[in-house]
Structure formats: C-alpha cells, structure tokens
Design a protein around this nucleic acid. Structure first.
Lengths: 145, 145
DNA sequence: TATTGTTATACTCTATAACTATA
DNA sequence: TATAGTTATAGAGTATAACAATA
C-alpha cells in the first residue's frame, strides 16, 4: 500500500458496511421479539413463510429456510407441539407432508409480523424524503422497479 | 380493515422489507465464505472484531458478539486451538484475559475481510449515483453524517 | 463481597448418513 | 430405483447457574 493511497472505499462498499452494521444491531431486536413469542429464529422464519391460505410441503420450507430437510422435521415438530402448524399427508403423493397454519398459529403469526415489519429506529427516524429515496434505490437493487 | 384500505406500507417499511430480503440472501454468501475458511459465524465475527493492534478482554468480545461471556470461552478456545488468536492474562488485573490475533490469524483475517467487505451483487450493480445515494442515506440513518 | 472467566448443563440448530414408506 | 420425510449422530451456538481465582 503506497503512502498516499487514501484508498477510499467505493460507495457501494461503504453502503454495504453500514447496512451490515444495521442488520447486526437489528438482530438483537429480532431475537428479542422472537423471545417474546417463545420462538427460535428458524421457527419465526417458518411461521412467516407458511401462508394461511395454501398448504406447503416440508421440502419447500427447507428451501425457504435454506437448510437440510432433516432440520425441518425438528423445527416443525416443535411448532406442531404448540399447536401452531399442522402436518397432513398430501393427497397426490403420500410421501409428501403438507404444512398448514392453525387458527392459533395465524393469530401468533399476525402479531409477530406486526412487530417484525416495523422498521427499526435508524430507518424510522429518517426524513420521509430519505425513506422514499432508500426505498426506491432498494427497489432498483432488487429489480423491483 | 376497510374494503378500500389500500394500506400502503410506509416508505421506511418497504425499504426495511427489501433490506431484510437482501440480508437474508446475503446470509448464504456469508455462510459460504465462512465455510471456505472453516469458520463458524461467531468465529468470523470474533476474528473481525479483534484488531491486530491492541489486545482486548474477553468481556469486550462478548459485548461485540452480543452473547454471554460463557460462550466466548468456547469460541475463543476453537480459534486458539487453530493458532489464530491468543489469550494472555492482563497485567493490571489477572482475572482479565486479553485477546490478540496471531500472525497467522491476521493473515486469515485479511483474506476473510477482503471477501466479506465486497458488496453483494444487488448493490454492486447499482449505478454509481445510486450507490452514492444509498451510502449517504445510510450514513444519515446511522448518524454518521 | 464483587467481578472475570470457566465449567456444567440443557436446548436448539446444523449437516451427514442410514432408514421408512411410498412412488 | 428414486424421492419425501424421519431418525440417529455429532458438533457448535446459546443462556443459566455454579464455581475458581482475583480484586
């Protein structure tokens, strides 16, 4: 590294570092909320992924959680023990088990979602203009424009 | 909910959802990189937190990782076993153990950092103008302006 | 007495591999 | 044979509580 290499990080790099920092901080909030509902992080993700409307096979949940099928067994076991989700053999292929949310699960899911969807302090206190700008750039980043 | 309640999410809410999505996707990349170096996520965070320059007590690492002191013992154990960090009793208070990075640890840390600091695809492909905008808004969000 | 780090314990996540029941 | 989900196993993270050494 040369003496005068100010080596300014690219704007994307700095933005990424700041975003990473925000997520690290927000993880605490996530854990705290999950804890309030007595749910582990994967359990939260599972509950959020399962829609009230259509049943989904275990394998799809594994895909969404990006973990092995064998893990889903335990995660769903614990959710089922608490009456939040249900397993039912699929009609078309009895190897497949479809997951549905129970009424109680839907209620928990709704309250949970309300808490988690709330933007964290650092974003919430941005000016409305900055919020819109951030949203628009993120839309473009993820190809939602 | 009224029939005509379009109930548009606030800009911050949508930005937050998009950011959360980006982080969820980026987590895979993080795990893959950690895996390349044979490090678990907390081990990565620990290595990144420990500066080459000044030694830091275990308790500070626990604070940075936002976990209990007792966990740090195991995490540091495994890093020490691999010769990446070292424990030394502090001179001023022999209860305290100071952590330093070894030469080999520093080398791993540098290569690891180079990979992790690279912004993920969705951010990298933004226009330079969008990158700057994103950086500036994030700075304001985190009070770095 | 209070504090730093360790140990013991118990639970969850995680992947891999072997197994089952279906197909 | 191949596939969906389970079980068994082993390793790591996590918090809590009890403990040692030091302050």
């Amino acid at each position: 590294m040369g003496a005068s290499t100010t080596r300014q990080a690219s704007p994307a790099s700095e933005a990424w570092a700041l975003m990473f920092e925000l997520m690290h901080v927000s993880k605490q909030r996530f854990m705290a909320i999950a804890s309030e509902f007595d749910l582990s992080p994967p359990q939260v993700m599972a509950l959020r992924h399962l829609d009230t409307a259509e049943p989904k096979p275990m394998s799809e949940l594994a895909l969404a959680l990006r973990c092995d099928n064998s893990n889903v067994t335990g995660i769903v076991d614990r959710l089922e023990d608490r009456g939040l989700v249900e397993r039912r053999a699929a009609a078309h292929d009895r190897r497949v088990k479809m997951l549905t949310i129970t009424e109680r699960g839907a209620e928990v899911r709704a309250r949970l979602g309300a808490r988690l969807d709330e933007p964290p302090e650092p974003l919430a206190r941005l000016s409305l203009e900055d919020q819109r700008t951030l949203r628009d750039v993120m839309r473009r980043a993820l190809g939602r424009d």
